[in-house]
Simulated scan of single mutants.
Amino acid sequence: MWGKVGASWGRVREVFRSGPGGGQEARGHNLFEAAAVYVSACAEDDQERIDEAAGWVSPEALSFGVSELACRAVIALARERDESPQTVARDLLGLPAA
C-alpha cells in the first residue's frame, strides 16, 4: 500500500515541478514564482509576461499558486487594515459588506 502512496505522491510532485509536459521536461521555475509573475503581469496588463509565466508550470499548478497567493495577500491586507479576511476580500472585489 505504501508503495502506491509513494508513487502517487511522486506524480503529484512532478505536476507541480514541471510544465504541461507532465513531468517529461523539468522547468527552472516553481509554481509560486510562476504565480507571482503571472499575477503581477495581469495587474500590469502585460500579455507577453502572462503567456511566459503560464508556460512555466502546468495549468493546475498555476491555479494552485495563484490561489495561494490570493490567500496570503488577503491575510496580509487584513492584518494591515485590522479587518477580517472576509471583509478585505469582499472590499477588493467590490462586493457589499456581508
Rank of each mutant, 00 (worst) to 15 (best):
D46F: 04
F16A: 10
E68R: 09
E83C: 10
L62I: 06
L77Y: 03
E33F: 00
V39T: 09
W2Y: 14
E68M: 08
R49I: 02
F64I: 07
A73S: 15
R49W: 01
E25T: 13
A43Y: 03
P85E: 10
R79G: 09
A26T: 12
P20Y: 03
A36D: 06
K4D: 15
W2D: 12
R13Y: 06
S40F: 04
P85M: 13
S84F: 06
E80N: 14
S84R: 10
K4W: 08
N30I: 05
D82Q: 13
L93F: 07
V57G: 01
E25H: 11
Q24G: 09
A36M: 08
V74L: 03
E14P: 01
A76I: 07
R90I: 05
S84L: 14
V37L: 05
E44Y: 05
D45H: 08
W2S: 13
S40V: 05
A78N: 04
D51S: 11
L69R: 06
L93V: 08
A26L: 15
T87M: 08
R27V: 13
A98P: 06
A35I: 04
V37N: 02
A41P: 00
E48L: 09
G19S: 08
S67E: 13
E25A: 12
F64L: 08
E83L: 15
V66T: 08
H29T: 09
R79L: 12
V5R: 12
E68L: 13
G65V: 02
A78H: 02
S40Q: 15
P20E: 06
E14H: 00
A36V: 05
F64V: 15
L62F: 02
E33I: 07
E52C: 02
A70H: 04
N30D: 15
L95W: 09
W9T: 14
L62M: 04
E33M: 10
V15M: 10
V15R: 05
G3Q: 12
R49F: 01
V37A: 03
R27H: 10
V39S: 04
A76Q: 09
L95N: 05
E48Q: 10
M1R: 10
R90F: 08
G94Y: 06
W2P: 06
E14R: 09
F32P: 04
A34Q: 00
H29Y: 13
G28I: 02
M1N: 08
E83T: 09
S63W: 11
S18A: 07
D51G: 04
G10P: 00
A70V: 09
